[in-house]
Design a protein around this nucleic acid. Structure first.
Lengths: 187, 187
DNA sequence: GCGTGATTTTGACCAATGTCAAAAGTTCTG
DNA sequence: CAGAACTTTTGACATTGGTCAAAATCACGC
């Protein structure tokens, strides 16, 4: 909880009152490796703060799993599409390690957003950051060779290599596991 | 201006007071085809609402232009990276038609965000929408063949084909112009 | 430590897409 | 309307990366 508050204050200043309030809005969740936090087809009613551990988002394409993002410590995670639109999720979120998470429901969050301009501000800024992150990944992906994509990953997010199986990384980079393996052997 | 207000009210309710205020915050801009709205290396101090016309964002990669998005009527456009971080833009925004735009400066927008929770809310919701749009494009891109990407474009955003040269579309879809041409001839 | 199952690597082959160059078609301008 | 400039198509060929199958390596429970 302390870690969550610190993270939030890092994004934007929060008054003591609001910090106090927030304490009661999140509930802790401790889950083992391989658990599904969110499953395809279900509506996602919570936003999660990942205090400890790592996880991946993936969807099914022609019977194959495609991993499209990873979450690590201090990330907010959920199926944003489902959480925002309240339509069924198209993706699954699976823990790659045992995790400690803090959950807040959509209703509780909406209550905070209504009540406090500060929380609305914080959320807006968080979205800015997540938007830029996604945009960077997007731009970095177009027109790159497999080798360039991997080198980029090494340079920008080396922590991923240390904690994620290569099969998932290959999928995340948009290539087959065999190609990733060959790229690595050629370095 | 009417069109802009209608669009904003569509995103989130706005009180009469705020609508009144907003009138004074945007200034109109009429620019001819091919003009650069934003140039690589410059810091982007404005957000634009595109009332009429269309434009593209592109960056240079090994001497080649890579087009990564298009803007049409009722889109907010800017180099979000530069606008948010106030670092130099890495992309160019070029008008593909003569355009009518409404500009608001970062300072003016920040003033509104400070003053009105409603504007902050509207901005947060707009970010949600833009995030989901980008995520959808991202997910739709991974592991698709050239033909699938093109068919997807036809299905989801057919207006693009009508107004954008095929060379830009090919780049947007991440393929060479020749490949796009062959895909089209095979349909 | 041993065995089982998961992960990663390697090899052979093939399909998709890129590149370069030229031809054909289109649009704009004076 | 002619010519120039740009856009799109077509062809030949090279390259990248995918697929399938098997081997090698690793990791964990007993």
């Amino acid at each position: 909880m302390k870690q969550l508050l610190t993270h939030l204050k890092n994004i934007h200043h929060l008054s003591e009152t609001i910090q106090e309030q927030l304490q009661h809005c999140f509930t802790q969740l401790v889950l083992p490796r391989n658990e599904l936090l969110i499953a395809e087809g279900k509506i996602c009613r919570h936003l999660y703060f990942l205090e400890q551990g790592c996880l991946r988002g993936f969807y099914n394409l022609d019977g194959k799993e495609v991993t499209h993002w990873f979450g690590f410590e201090n990330d907010f995670v959920t199926s944003f599409h489902s959480f925002i639109t309240q339509e069924p999720a198209v993706e699954n979120i699976q823990l790659m390690e045992g995790c400690v998470l803090w959950a807040i429901s959509r209703e509780t969050l909406n209550g905070l957003l209504d009540k406090y301009h500060e929380v609305e501000r914080l959320t807006r800024i968080a979205y800015e950051q997540y938007y830029l992150r996604l945009e960077e990944r997007y731009v970095n992906g177009q027109f790159k060779t497999a080798a360039e994509l991997y080198e980029n990953l090494l340079k920008r997010t080396p922590h991923i290599i240390e904690r994620v199986p290569l099969g998932y990384i290959a999928s995340y980079l948009g290539m087959s596991q065999e190609t990733l393996s060959r790229v690595r052997s050629r370095l």
